[in-house]
Amino acid sequence: MVGAFVPVCVQCGTRSNPCRCKVVGSTLGFVAFAAAAVVEWPVGALVYLFRHMKGRRIMAHPATVVYPSVSNAIPI
């Protein structure tokens, strides 16, 4: 039997909602991070061969821009 793996991320201690825990925003942020990383990390590695700093910025983009913007957009 093969089951589907669904990532569930829980972030506690936030002040964005009364419960102080986020599940939906963190989980969707992780899924968006993984989707962006699948595309941007190989491209960043290729660019890194010629332009080191530009390649590093491309590879860091999912962690520094995609995950925080998606996670912070959904307060629950």
Rank of each mutant, 00 (worst) to 15 (best):
N72K: 07
W41I: 09
F50C: 03
I58L: 14
G13R: 04
V70S: 08
K22A: 13
G29D: 00
A35G: 04
I74T: 06
I58W: 09
A60K: 15
V2W: 04
V8Q: 13
A4P: 00
R56E: 13
T14R: 08
V43L: 15
C21Q: 02
Q11I: 05
V70N: 04
A60H: 10
F30Q: 02
F50T: 06
P7I: 12
K54P: 03
M1A: 15
I74P: 07
G44F: 10
M1Q: 07
G55W: 14
A35W: 00
F50Y: 14
W41G: 01
E40L: 15
Y67A: 10
V65F: 13
V31T: 07
M59E: 01
A32T: 01
G44L: 09
S69R: 11
L28H: 07
F33Q: 05
V8M: 13
V43H: 13
V24P: 03
L28T: 03
G25Q: 03
C9V: 07
V65G: 03
F50E: 05
R20W: 00
P68N: 01
G44N: 06
L49K: 01
Y67L: 15
M53T: 12
G55P: 15
H52E: 06
R57I: 11
R51P: 00
L28F: 13
G3A: 04
E40P: 01
S26R: 09
A4E: 09
K54V: 11
N72S: 02
P18S: 13
M53W: 14
K22M: 11
V66C: 02
V2I: 08
W41C: 05
V66S: 03
N72F: 03
R51D: 06
W41A: 10
